[in-house]
Each structure stands twice: as C-alpha cells, then as structure tokens.
Amino acid sequence: MTTLFFPEYEDAEPGAPLAIFGAGGLGREVLLLLRQLNATHPTWEVRGFYDDQAPATPTVAGLPYLGTSADLNATAEPLAVAVAVGSPAGRAAVVSRLTSGQLSFPALVHPGVALAPHQRIVLGEGSIVQQGCILTCDITLGRFVLLNLGCTVGHDAVLGDFASLMPHANVSGAAQPAPAPTWAPMRP
C-alpha cells in the first residue's frame, strides 16, 4: 500500500509512458481521466490500448490498439499501465497475467478529487478514482480499486483489493470487508 499525499503522488516524470489495458468504454473513460490529469499536471504520454480481445478498429479514441497482455509483458522498456476493466474478477485476472518487471501500476486520481495529508487516505497501486468522488478521512483502498464517477467513501472505510464502486455508489463510514461466511449444516 502507498499512503497517498499529492507531493508523493505526482512523482512520475513529465512524459512518462503509460498504456491502458482495456479497450472498451471504461478504457476510454480512463483516457479522459489521463487527459484531465495532464491538463493540470503534464505527466503521462499515453501510448495506446492493450486488450486480450482486439477492438473492431485499429484505433480506440484516436490511439492505437497495441496488442494483448502477452504483447504488454514483452515490452522492453519501463511502462506504466492503467488497468481499465470494470469487473473485479476480470481486473484481478488481467493483473495476474501482467507479470513483466517492466510494468508499473500508478494510482490515478482525478485532479478535482480533494485529497490532503490530513485526510489520511491509503491508496493501493493501480487504483483509479474518477471525477466527482468524495473521500472523507482515514480510508484504505486496496490494490486496483475502482471508484467510478461520483462515488463517496466515508470515514474509516476499507475497500479490499480489486473492489469496484460503480457511478454514484456510496459507502458509509466504518464499512469493512465482511468476514468469510462460515456455514454449518442445518439440523433436521
């Protein structure tokens, strides 16, 4: 986990190469997020899209389709990757296939989302926080968490690895992952 403070968060060099894994609708929304981030703090040179299912056209939102997860793993240079897959299980499966030591997974937070050191937000690698989200204080987001448009997360909430909140979902204060259920046979 990385404790997120903006001076540490914005540590990528201007022009750092980044690719998006996921050439569908969420991938295009993540491209928009990256363009919004670059408008306020030029950081990312978005190279294009990867996806294990090739899109119908050779470009997506004006950027090239670059190949599959195998192609991404074969990259010879360091490359940041935003995993834009909405399904938690699908996102976890993609991340398990991205094994190259050249790949890194930055947290991406919309520039309009208020975050400050006094909020004590812990944000795992590869997490994406979209426009309009509100996070209060003492919150932990695991690895590769997706907070889609307009979500709210209250105090002391913990969202585990690969959790997804879809647009306008609200998590109240002190929400924690449920313990694994224990099942006992029913008595006749």
Score class of each variant (00 low, 15 high):
A107M: 07
R187N: 12
L123N: 00
V60G: 06
P106Y: 01
C151P: 08
A84W: 01
P117R: 12
A76L: 05
A184C: 11
P179N: 08
M1Q: 12
R143C: 04
P14W: 08
L79N: 07
L135P: 13
A84M: 06
M166C: 11
P58T: 00
T99H: 08
G25K: 03
L66H: 10
V145T: 10
V85N: 00
Y9H: 12
A76V: 07
S69M: 10
A12W: 06
Q36T: 10
V94A: 01
G67H: 02
F21G: 03
Q131T: 12
P42T: 00
S164Y: 03
L159W: 03
M186I: 14
D138G: 00
D71W: 14
L32Y: 10
V81Q: 03
V158R: 15
L141A: 08
A61F: 08
T3C: 04
P78V: 01
V113P: 13
V85T: 00
T40V: 14
L63A: 08
S172W: 05
Q53P: 01
V81M: 01
G126E: 04
R120C: 05
T152E: 15
H168E: 08
A178D: 14
A169R: 15
S164H: 05
F6Y: 13
R28Q: 08
A74T: 00
G15M: 03
A16G: 00
N73W: 12
Q36G: 08
Q53T: 15
S100C: 02
N73Y: 07
F21P: 02
D138A: 07
Y50F: 10
G132Y: 00
T152A: 15
G15V: 07
A157P: 09
Y50I: 05
L98G: 06
